[in-house]
Design a protein around this nucleic acid. Structure first.
Length: 210
DNA sequence: ACATTAAGTGATT
DNA sequence: AATCACTTAATGT
């Protein structure tokens, strides 16, 4: 049995199911920045995350992107489950934020397991619930928080993902996630630095108040 | 040494 | 908060 499957899912799913998952799924590895779900694409298998973090975003007709949530190991992408089940096109884009390993489970198994395994039903339900909560969180921050607060949230999220207080990112890249220009981000970061929340370097930012 | 890219800043809307 | 125009600083060749 794949150890990562066991360590990340054994507390969620029953042993029989884990074996079935292993038997019928394909292991997929995605490098940093790899796009593995594109908007408009049909999804024929659903991913279980073993290692790494994935950024899920919504893309509108031309270019504009909005960050929905991050998924980490033990999670699955509720949106792709949704697409699997009613065989519709993907509404989202999924990019590997770090090096990532996934198990791709064929959708044909989904229905079967829903009936057969209680833990699977619960897992699916809980996934939906936590994803929905994540989305609510990002909507909240979008609507209620000021830009500088949003930035700080974002930076703190990043440190959690990379388990480091210094993250490698350019102002330009942040600006893309925030739908704004690089100049604005540079200025906000400068403020945060003066306040003593961060230290700025070239190509990286150190977050202080964790 | 030179070109390229990231970041800082003032002025304008 | 966005855009422009320009400067300064870091990094690669």
């Amino acid at each position: 049995m794949i150890e990562k499957l066991k360590t990340n899912y054994s507390y969620l799913l029953e042993p029989d199911l884990l074996e079935e998952i292993e038997a019928c799924s394909i292991l997929k590895k995605v490098e940093v920045g790899g796009v593995f779900i594109k908007p408009g694409q049909y999804i024929k298998s659903m991913p279980l995350l073993l290692e790494g973090t994935i950024k899920v975003s919504r893309k509108d007709t031309e270019g504009d992107e909005i960050l929905l949530y991050f998924i980490e190991k033990g999670d699955t992408c509720a949106m792709s489950m949704n697409c699997c089940m009613n065989n519709s096109k993907s509404q989202i884009k999924a990019v590997a934020e770090t090096y990532t390993e996934l198990l791709m489970v064929p959708i044909s198994k989904m229905d079967e397991w829903m009936i057969k395994y209680k833990s699977w039903r619960e897992y699916v339900l809980i996934s939906y619930q936590t994803r929905l909560n994540e989305v609510i969180k990002t909507v909240d921050s979008l609507v209620f928080l000021k830009m500088d607060e949003r930035l700080m949230n974002y930076l703190q999220d990043k440190t959690k993902i990379f388990h480091k207080d210094t993250i490698n990112i350019t102002h330009e890249e942040i600006a893309k996630d925030f739908h704004t220009s690089r100049v604005v981000i540079s200025r906000l970061l400068k403020k945060l630095e003066v306040k003593g929340d961060v230290i700025l370097y070239r190509n990286s930012i150190k977050i202080l108040n964790l």
